[in-house]
Design a protein around this nucleic acid. Structure first.
Lengths: 123, 123
DNA sequence: TAAGTGTACTAATACAATTAATACACTTAA
DNA sequence: TTAAGTGTATTAATTGTATTAGTACACTTA
């Protein structure tokens, strides 16, 4: 479910955050379903439990999960938080688009890139 | 010409790299034109000259500038390096697009984002 | 009650970013 | 020739962040 890429320069907790966020946003993890415990996942990934805890804290801060002491962490059931995080991703995309535009990359090239990624031909 | 954003989490040398790369890619800095000296820019930005040096070294490694001992740093005159760096930016865009797609963001929303950024209506 | 859970805290280590101070080689203009 | 300005290289020190490690406490469930 979760894989750490040690060639990735980003911190481990950030990789975990992004991975879980992805699984929640696309619906792979259903609302109210339980996440692995901080200790269990720590053992599974051979890392420290504090690192998992840090990732879970951030996910909770974003409203993507909620935690119950003594029971565990669970996927949030609120739909608006999903939309909110998707909007943040779109904002990051927008920033990258601005960089591309300001770097003199032609509009058609960007459009091709989008088409290829989404494999949409009916445009 | 160059501005440092201390609210930006990225290292200073990286901000300088990106800023100069942008100016070179979009043609604001013409081939063979001279860049500020490492010392002069350091004083101007109130940072250490080594930080400028580090940024210039990376820009030279990318082939975007060339340096002459005792004279200064100059914008590269080779067109293919511009294309090469633009392709790298497109690859970063592609990765962000994949994240958006895998996060369940609809194709039309991404397309709207592209349209708005490039302000193209004839689609 | 025991085991499993989240949470909080501190200490220690490792690494990266940055500053600082030099020193050296080269170019240009007075 | 000399002085000023340029790039380059090196080392040391400081700072901040990521991560590990260990511990303790509160809560839930069987």
């Amino acid at each position: 479910m979760i894989v750490i890429d040690y060639h990735d320069k980003r911190p481990i907790y950030e990789q975990i955050i992004d991975r879980f966020q992805l699984l929640i946003l696309n619906g792979a993890l259903e609302p109210d379903s339980q996440l692995p415990s901080v200790r269990a996942l720590a053992v599974d990934l051979s890392i420290n439990a504090n690192t998992i805890q840090r990732a879970y804290s951030e996910l909770e801060r974003r409203g993507l999960i909620y935690s119950i002491k003594g029971r565990g962490n669970f996927v949030s059931a609120q739909k608006d938080v999903v939309k909110e995080q998707q909007d943040k991703l779109l904002e990051e995309l927008r920033q990258q688009l601005v960089i591309c535009k300001e770097s003199g990359i032609e509009f058609i090239k960007v459009l091709d890139c989008v088409r290829e990624t989404f494999q949409e031909v009916n445009l």
